[in-house]
Amino acid sequence: MNARDRDGEGRARSARPRDGLGRPLPYGAAGVERQPEGVVRSPAATVAEAQRLLDAGMPFHAHEVFEDAWKSGPADAAPLWRAMAQLAVGLTHAARGNALGGARLLRRGAASLDGVTQEYGLDLPGLVRWAGELAHRVDGGAVVDAAREAPRLRGGGGLE
Rank of each mutant, 00 (worst) to 15 (best):
N2P: 14
A3L: 15
A3Q: 14
D7F: 11
G8V: 14
G10C: 14
A12K: 05
R18H: 05
D19K: 10
L21C: 03
G22T: 06
P24M: 10
P26V: 02
Y27E: 15
A30P: 07
G31A: 04
P36Y: 07
V39A: 01
V39Q: 03
R41F: 01
A44H: 12
A44Y: 05
A44L: 03
A44K: 05
L54G: 00
D55R: 01
A56G: 00
A56M: 03
G57N: 07
P59I: 02
F60N: 07
H61S: 08
V65L: 04
P74T: 09
D76L: 06
D76S: 06
M84H: 00
Q86I: 01
Q86H: 09
G90Y: 11
T92K: 13
A94V: 01
N98F: 03
G101V: 00
A103P: 09
L105W: 13
L106K: 05
G109D: 04
G115P: 08
G115V: 01
E119N: 09
Y120L: 05
G121M: 08
L122W: 13
L122Q: 13
L124I: 15
P125Q: 10
L127G: 13
L127Y: 07
E133N: 15
A135G: 05
D139L: 11
G140K: 11
G141C: 09
A142H: 09
A142I: 06
D145W: 08
D145K: 09
A146P: 15
A146R: 03
R148W: 06
A150K: 01
A150H: 02
P151M: 03
L153F: 02
G156P: 11
G156I: 07
G158Y: 01
